[in-house]
């Protein structure tokens, strides 16, 4: 890709991308105007873009167009959904916010039900089944590690202790050992997560440097070298 075979929009997009990349990388010198300017632009552009996408991709096709072009049943359904949507607008005013509570209650209730149902049937049961099935495979070691890791990690968050008469509450030594093992698994998990975050960030940096070098190599250097 060279500047010659690039349209103006792409060229402007590349220039803007290059500039804002430099602005963001200027943070290595500390907080400065260029960094703040770039972050503000990104935040504003993302919000504006999200609004436009919502309008053109949600409101118009699912609310306006059914009212305008939909059938009677579709209009009735749309109006029945429009009313609670308008009541949600009352949440803007603190004085009228109670009007939007029913619609908000429906949304929260539905969201909670979806999350709970998905968690039970999409995570807990399948994970329990997968943990059991690990031993059905021939990889006993992997299954054992998964079982020990899961068991010890859950016991790590067990804070009950036995209290004898006239003695201070004490945790059994075996529980302490299990908790220590669980803590080790948690530490390894956090290490893996940190490594994944670091790799993701490092990849983003590499991608940006690659973009910069590509921009320079294909646009700046040909122009500079003639």
């Amino acid at each position: 890709m060279t500047a010659a075979n690039m349209n103006l929009a792409d060229l402007i997009g590349l220039l803007i991308g290059f500039s804002f990349t430099i602005f963001i990388l200027s943070y290595i010198l500390g907080d400065n105007f260029l960094f703040r300017f770039a972050t503000h632009i990104f935040i504003g552009a993302a919000a504006g873009y999200a609004s436009v996408v919502t309008i053109y991709n949600v409101i118009l096709p699912q609310l306006i167009f059914p009212l305008m072009n939909g059938g009677q049943g579709e209009m009735i359904l749309t109006i029945s959904l429009l009313i609670p949507s308008l009541l949600l607008l009352a949440k803007i005013s603190p004085r009228l916010s109670k009007i939007g509570n029913p619609a908000m209650a429906i949304l929260v209730g539905i969201g909670a039900a979806v999350a709970i149902g998905g968690g039970i049937f999409g995570t807990i049961f399948p994970q329990v089944s997968a943990a059991v099935n690990v031993f059905e495979t021939n990889n006993f070691l992997e299954g054992a590690i998964l079982l020990i890791g899961t068991f010890t990690t859950l016991l790590y968050f067990q804070f009950n202790s036995k209290q004898s008469k006239n003695q201070r509450p004490a945790i059994v030594q075996a529980t302490k050992l299990i908790r220590w093992i669980g803590k080790a698994f948690i530490a390894i998990t956090f290490g893996a997560l940190f490594a994944g975050v670091y790799v993701a960030a490092l990849t983003a940096l590499i991608e940006r440097f690659s973009f910069l070098w590509t921009f320079i190599k294909e646009l700046v250097l040909p122009a500079a070298l003639g």
Binding site: P126, Q127, T137, A192, L193, G196, V199, A200, T203
Partner: peptide, 14 residues
């Protein structure tokens, strides 16, 4: 992403 892999690993399998 690399940062999501440890979390999705339990769901990945045979």
């Amino acid at each position: 992403s690399a940062q999501v892999e440890p979390i999705l690993r339990p769901f990945v399998g045979g």
